[in-house]
Every structure is written in C-alpha cells, then in structure tokens.
Design a protein around this nucleic acid. Structure first.
Length: 264
DNA sequence: ATGTCACAGTCCCTGTGA
C-alpha cells in the first residue's frame, strides 16, 4: 500500500501535474493540501476517471484539504469539529486505514497572532491524535509548516528568528509524536537531508535551498509495516510545479501470520 | 536585501498570503 501527501498550491492550477503524477505513481491514498478550492469546484471527476474516490473540505481562496483513495473512503471528518474558521484538516478511513490530511497554519512571523493560532492548532491536532481509535492503523500527513530539526533546513543560520524552526513549534510537533506517532521518512532515513518544499523565489529549488516540512506521522502498527518513504523531488521540476513535492510512504499488507503486523 | 506563484477584486494591475 502506497500513501502520499502533497501540498499542491491550488488544485485547479495544478490539475494536470496532479493527474499526471497519479497516473505514473499510482498511490492508493493521497492527502492533498492547499487546494484553494470550494467543494463545488473540486475536480472530483478528473480523479474518479483515474480510479480515485475523493472527499474535499474547502473554503475557496485559501486553505482546503482533500483525501483521494483507490481503496474506499468512509467515516469522513471535516475539521476538528470544534468550530473551525479555516478548512485545514480532513479525516477519512480508507481500506482500514485512518488518515488525516492536514494543512498546518503558516504562522507568518513569531510576533504575529497567526503564530499563536498555529501553536494552538497543533495542540488541537495533538488532541485529535491522542483520541484516535487504537484498533485502526493511523496516519496523519500533510504540510506541517514545521521543520522538525535543523537537519531539515538548508541553512539553519538563515532561519534564526523565523517561523517553521522555533522551539515552541518543534515542541508542539513533538507533542503530537508523543501520542505514539513517528515521522516515517526520518525514521527510515535518519541521515538523508531530503527537503519537501522550496520557495519559488530566488532559484531556491535549483540551489536546493529547501525545508522538510511535509510529513507522514504513523502509528506503531504502520511503522512496523513500512517498507519505504521518500520525497518525489521530480514532481517539483518542470512546468507549473507546486512549491512542494509529494512525500510517499509504502507499507506491506497486513500478514495475519505475522504477530507483529496482525490487527487484533 | 527575495531572480515567484495564485487568487480575488480594485478586473489586464494591485494587494494579500505563502
């Protein structure tokens, strides 16, 4: 089973790139962020032609998250259910896997009210993760807008005093992980400096001036089944790319004869 | 010290957010 997360920076502007990528990569489940679409305008038919059911939680100009699945969609949850003002989290059960597509607030700057909103939002996500059904394999993926460590930054010195790297943001991310989730890409590749986002400005991609801020957080059952995780850097190349690349995780199917992977 | 992109409104340029 292959699961991917991708901040597409407008699903309308990126539709050709997204359908092309789906056709070639054939993931089973895809979490999209920053669709910048309303539910009415979301191009569900283009995805269904490729064999994907989809669900979208959008608000139009900003934000917007979606789940695409070739293995079914059930039990959809739009938002935290506590009075969201912005469409940033969407949950669904796909083939026995509970997934959430997350677009964490940017924060803008450390002295901006949006930064406090970001920290509070991450705490709400922690509560959601802590309250999960322990019998369902669980994955939270998306654009976290937090680089977990300095190793996830092209130049930590250039980012001192900025968002995405501050101690409170990293602590908020660690609090989510402390519910029993692991950063899959880093877990499987402790020494690879892979980035998932590069600014459009300044030739950042060409110079590999990036950050790893797009994450797949998985529970212990999925960590045991994981066989691969990587950033599909090629998707950042070419015509009209998103400024983010997809992050992929691959998992063995549950083997009922393996006591480490069987569902109880 | 942004060599950028996308969106919507003020609508073929500008402000905003990233």
């Amino acid at each position: 089973m292959k699961v991917a997360t991708w901040n597409v920076n407008s699903v309308a502007a990126r539709l050709g790139r997204v359908t092309e990528w789906l056709s070639v990569s054939r993931p089973d489940v895809v979490l999209l962020q920053e669709t910048k679409s309303t539910d009415d305008r979301f191009p569900a038919s283009a995805f269904s032609e490729l064999g994907y059911e989809s669900v979208h939680y959008g608000q139009g100009q900003w934000n917007g998250v979606a789940v695409l699945s070739a293995i079914g969609i059930a039990d959809v949850q739009r938002g935290f259910g506590d009075g969201d003002l912005e469409a940033r989290v969407l949950g669904a059960t796909c083939g026995g896997l509970r997934v959430y597509s997350c677009y964490v607030p940017n924060g803008r700057s450390l002295d901006d009210p949006h930064y406090q909103y970001k920290l509070a939002w991450l705490d709400r996500l922690r509560n959601l993760a802590a309250a999960r059904d322990p019998l369902l394999p669980f994955l939270v993926g998306g654009d976290f807008n937090v680089a977990p460590s300095d190793f996830d930054c092209w130049d930590p010195a250039a980012l001192v005093g900025a968002t995405h790297v501050s101690a409170p943001e990293r602590a908020a991310l660690e609090a989510i992980e402390s519910t029993g989730l692991v950063d899959l890409t880093r877990s499987l590749h402790p020494h690879e400096q892979w980035f998932s986002w590069w600014d459009y400005r300044g030739g950042a991609f060409h110079r590999n001036h990036g950050l790893r801020i797009d994450l797949l957080l998985v529970d212990e059952s999925l960590r045991r089944r994981a066989t691969a995780s990587y950033v599909d850097r090629d998707a950042r190349k070419g015509e009209k790319p998103s400024d983010h690349a997809p992050v992929v995780g691959e998992f063995r199917e549950v083997d009922e004869w393996d006591p480490h992977t069987s569902i109880q």
